[in-house]
Every structure is written in C-alpha cells, then in structure tokens.
Design a protein around this nucleic acid. Structure first.
Lengths: 202, 202, 202, 202
DNA sequence: GCCTAATCGAGACGGTACGTCGGGTCTTTGG
DNA sequence: CCAAAGACCCGACGTACCGTCTCGATTAGGC
C-alpha cells in the first residue's frame, strides 16, 4: 500500500489557500449572487491566482458546492423527546440555513445546474442532499424507538416514506423562502409541522 | 376611458416575430438548457435580428419568463367531484409540466435569478406562481361547496391555508422531480395526496 | 423634347428638406468629423426622417460630396494683373477653404473613400477637383494673354502643364494644412508662390 | 540607467502575435481597403483572439499606423552625386510606396482621422512623416556639401525651407496618385523635379 | 371636390461590427 | 512540484449604425 499520499515531492499545496478560497466564494456569493460570481473575483478576494483555483476545482459549480457544503454540516438531529419537537427543530434549522445569503444565492442555482450535469448532481447530492435526508432518517428512527411511529414493515417502504417526507419538507421550506420569498416564521413552522404530523401519527 | 393606444406612429412591431422568438426560446431551452441558451442563438433560430429581441425583452430572464409562462396557461381546475381527485389532478398536471424539458430547464434557474431581482420576481409571480395558486384556491372553494372542508373562519386564515398548501404541493413536486430527479409516478402522487389530505379532512 | 421633368405626379419633394439636410451635414461634419458623422444624426439635426435622406442620396459619401461641394463654388479667378498676384490669390482662397472645419473633416476622408469607389471618384472630381483645376487653367490663359507666359505649343503639353501645376498647388496646401497641421500664413503663401513662379517664368 | 523592464512577471506577450497581427493588417488593408478593414477580421487572419489585439492597440487607427509604418522604413537617401538625381530618387521611392495597395488604402484615411485626433496625429508624424522629412534634410545637406546649394543662413530659415520643400513633394505626389489617380510616370517625375529644381538652383 | 400618387414623419426590421467581459488554459519567474 | 502573475483563445454580451421596410398622415396635381 502506498499509504501516505501526504509525502509528495515539491512544494505542498497550501491549506490556507483552500480556506481562503472557500471563504471568498461564500462572501462573493452573499454579495453578488450566483450570476455575479466570477472566478477571477474569487481569486482576487482570496489573494490567490486563478491557476491555484482551477488546480483544485474543475469549475465554478464544484467550487460553490464545496463552499456551501460546510454550511450544511451544522445540521444536526437532536432527540428532543417528541416527534413534533424533532420535526420543528429540523425545519427550523433548514429555514435558518436558507436565511443566509450564501446558501440562498447558491442553492437554487446549483440545483438548476445540477439538473443538466450528472457529475454535479452527484456532488450536490453527497454534500447537500444526503446530510439533510439523514436527519429525516434519524428522526424517524427516534420516533420509532419512542413508539410514536410504527416499526418498518419493509426496508423499501421505509425508504419511500423517508423520501416523500424529505421532499415535502425540503421542497416546502425552499418554496416558501426562495420562491414565495416569505420568511419561515415560528407560526408557519408550527402550522407546517401540524400538517406533516397528522398523517404520520393518525 | 383611456383611448386604446392602437394608433401609434411608425411601423408596428411584428406579432410574428414575437411568436417566433418565444417558440425559439422554448426550443433552445429544451435543447441546450438554461446555461446554454444564448440571445444570439435564439435570434438566429427565430430568424430575427438580435436588436429585435432586445427591443422587446431587456434580458434573458424576462424573455424566458414570457416564453415559459404560456406553458402554465394550460393548468386548469376541473371539479372532479372529490377533494382527493382534485388534488391528484392538480399534482398530476404540475408534474406533467415539470416533465417538459423547457420548464425543467427554466424553472429553477428562473427562481434562482428572481431571488436577487425584485422586478423579475414580480414577473415570475404574475406569470407562473399566481396561475398555480389560483388552482389551489378554486379547489378549496369547490371542496367547501361540497362540504368536504369547513367554511372559512376568516379571510386571513384562508389565505394562510392556501399559501401553506400551495408551497407544500409546489415545493414537494419540484423537489422530487428537479432536485431528487425522480419521476412523480402515479403511486407517488397517490401517497403524496394522502399525506396532504389527512390533515385537511381530519 | 420632354423637357420639363419638373411636372410629376404626387407630392413634390420638399426643397426645404434638401437645404436643411445639407446644412445639417456640414454642421455635423464640423462638429464630429467624418468618422463621427452618422446618417441618423444628420436626419435628426435636419428634422427629417432617414427615409427622406436616402431617397435623395444613396449613401453617406455622396451626401457629403454634395454638402461640401457648395463650399468650392465660391472659388473664383479674379484677374489681378500679374501671374504672381493671381497665384497668391488662388492659394489664399484654397487655404481659406481648408481652414473651415467642414471641408477639413471631409476632404481627406472623401479622397480616401474615392480611391476605392470609382463612382464616388467621378463625383468628387466633378464637384470638387474640376472647379479648382479650372482656376489654374484660367490663370494660365490670363498670363498668356498678358505675355507673362509663352503660348501653348500643343494642347497635350498644355494639359500636362496644368495638371502638374494643379497637383503641386493643391497637394502642397493640403499637405501643409491637413497633414503637417500648420497654417498657410501669408509668408508661407509668398514663399510657396515664389517657388512655383520661378520655373514658370524663367 | 532605467532598469530594462525585460524581467516582468507573468507570461510575456507573444512577439509572434505582434508580427502576425501587423502582417494580417497589411493584407486586409490591401484586400479590403480602409473601410472594409475589421478588427475581428484582422484577428482571425492573424490567428489571434480579438482580446489580444485590443491589449496591444487601443483602436483601428493606431494599429494601422504601426502596420503601415514599417513600409516607410525602407525609404533611404542614397547620395547619387547630384541634387537632381537625389530628388528624382526620393520622389521615385515615395511614388513606389504609394503604388502599394496597403499604403494607398491607409494613408489618406489615416491623415483624415489624424486631423481630429491629436494623439493619432503625433503617432502618424513620428512613424510616417518624420522619416520622409529626414530624407529632404539629408538631401539638402548633401547638396550643400557638394556646393550645389548655398549654406544655411540661419537654422530657422533652413527649417522653413525643408518644410516647404517637403510639403510640396509629398503633397504633389500624393495628390497626383491618390486624388487625381494617375501614376507617377518617369516623365512626370522628371518634369516635377525640374519644377522643383529651378527655384532651388537659380 | 374628389382621386391618385408620391412624399413625409416615425420607427421597427435584418445585419454587421463594435469593444468588453468572463471562462478556462498556458507560459513565464520565483519559491 | 507549487504559487502568482498575466497573456492567451474563445464565445457571448449588449450597443450603435447601416440601409430597408412598413405604417398612417400629408400634399400636391388631374379629372
């Protein structure tokens, strides 16, 4: 095994550069939006040459995915003792994310690009979608452990349940905040949670 | 009465050109996607000079809104006799729309741009969002007439109800089809309708 | 003889328009130079539609020829009693013409265009060159009548003489004023006349 | 000593590109004339991006000056032993230059533009006018050395003499070839030289 | 006193070139 | 081997004029 790929010849890549580039990307995104973001501008903000940027990311899209992905790392499933509390918490977290200009500017644009580019779609899925979906999975398991939800009848059905719940939550929040352009107020979150909770528990 | 401004000076704008441009835009959109769509290309396809195009639409965004808007005109609320049937019909129609490459390519990109440009947002809302929301409103009214739903307690609450239902339907379908990239099969539509129907009728 | 083509059917062309257009052309020429002159601008200045302009002149070039030609109509050969005085007068008149911004801006550009366009060249020759050359011819005849110059030995030789004198006078004045960019002061005119007179009278 | 700015950062500009662009400009000029010359076309012919072209020359005018200037470098003053021979040689060289399509197409147009643009005028003067005028200066000095011409009485007078001779030679040849459109035949050159020589030597 | 026909203004039309900008690559010098 | 700098090719942008066209509205003669 050629285990440690750390020891390479020549000058090693600067880890500072990576951080600076991602931070610059987020800043530019928040400031100028997706359309106004240019590679040259990001490079300048990061105090880095364009070459350095392209050495690490093949294109603007991949760069933005990575830059925004870290924002989704803070999503977490805290078992709050009831399904309603858990759902509300998840919705609130996701809404909080979409309230940030960076993710606001990036998310829909990224989805739009991804709908044409399979490689990007994969990357988006791994970095952005899956972490969110995992939350739904965990919440469901916790509710089952608590006895609020029935146990899985089959893995396929479980998977479908999770998918439909996930698409509904993510879609509704995104649509409200990014398309309708209205905030996800606590009242709205509460009403939406009720909407979601009723069929699950009845 | 404000005199109809039909009698204007100079050569009138060609209505043929308008139609050709919008058709060319839809074709290019379906073929090349949002990112690949070029004003010059649209002009060429439409057999029109770029100038003519810019005389009518200030930018790519507005053009695409108008080009795609007609697709949403076919949405209709047919009173099918039951709330479930009506919801399923609406979801199916919307899913059918999003299955077309033109709208697929345009919708997310348009939403993304609109989140930065208030004028565009207004245009999107009028041409695309409102016609959809109207369907929800009509379906609700029909269900109330049938006695399936309780009458409005207050106009504000009614409005909020419609908003939340609308965001949920639109968001979920969009997210499933455009982000998750999976089709809205009859089975999925049925399950989603159930999810939606339960809290409404319980 | 179908002499008077003046009587035509339909609305006659406005003579005012012609005058306004030519004046506007000269004004635009003096203000913006050849490169800055546009048909649309001339039309606007003249308070006339572009169509009206193109109905009369096929292109910018022909228009400018006509607009500038009238300036050359004021050239005249006044028999002042001596060859020197006559030459000086001609040079002075031509220099005066080239001191006007209109002709300054138009002349070289017109010559440049004409070197590629035979039709334009003909028009330039008739409207601009020939009137000038006529002066040389008249001056020569006057000097011969006075006995200052020998009579023609042959028509061909006379013609060659006139050509060479004309090219020398016109070329030198143009080059001094338009290329070297220095004024044709009385002193310069006097020196140049001497230069020209010596070989003619010796 | 100002440090030679040879050691610069970044990729150096390609000297090949410069040569290719200037050659392409001359070719396009000879083929299409001044009016038909397009920046895009020049770039294509040179196998170069438009950007590269604009990086070096701010506009068509400056580019053409540089492209044509090299043609004037071949002008030389060969001391042929007599003033007449020297003048004839100079006139012949200049006529030869104006017989080339490139310079024919460029010269008058350039002069026309320069009459409105001081910066361009300076550039024209340095690249095109001065090399020619130098020939007159040298010829005069040689003739003085030979004793054919009297020595300078004063620097100013010498300068004025040179100017007037230069404007006359250049103007006459240009006017004959480019405006009258007739060739500078050996006979014409001989006659013109006589015209010029008489006042100088009498 | 209409009719006919060419003119007028206005402005949209299909084109072509413009000069700029961003994307992504390549070639330098220097670490 | 990497980094900074910047030149490179490419292709789209939105604009400006070109010269042509289609309008509705005039403005003369000729009947």
């Amino acid at each position: 095994m050629t285990e440690p790929p750390t020891a390479r010849k020549g000058r090693p890549r600067s880890a500072d550069a990576d951080r600076a580039i991602l931070a610059a990307t987020r800043a530019a995104l928040a400031e100028l939006g997706w359309g106004g973001l240019t590679m040259g501008d990001v490079a300048t903000r990061a105090g880095v040459a364009k070459t350095t940027l392209y050495r690490r990311w093949p294109s603007k899209n991949e760069l933005v995915v990575d830059a925004v992905a870290v924002l989704f790392d803070e999503l977490a499933m805290a078992d709050l003792g009831s399904l309603r509390a858990d759902i509300e918490a998840v919705v609130r977290q996701f809404a909080g994310l979409l309230a940030q200009p960076e993710s606001q500017a990036a998310l829909l644009a990224l989805f739009a690009e991804a709908s044409r580019d399979p490689a990007l779609r994969l990357r988006v899925r791994e970095s952005i979608i899956d972490p969110q979906k995992e939350l739904v999975r965990l919440g469901r398991a916790a509710a089952q452990a608590r006895g609020e939800l029935a146990a899985d009848t089959s893995p396929e059905a479980a998977c479908e349940d999770i998918d439909i719940i996930f698409d509904t939550i993510a879609g509704a929040v995104e649509h409200r905040m990014l398309v309708s352009g209205e905030p996800a107020s606590p009242a709205w979150i509460s009403r939406f949670t009720t909407l979601l909770l009723t069929p699950l528990t009845s």
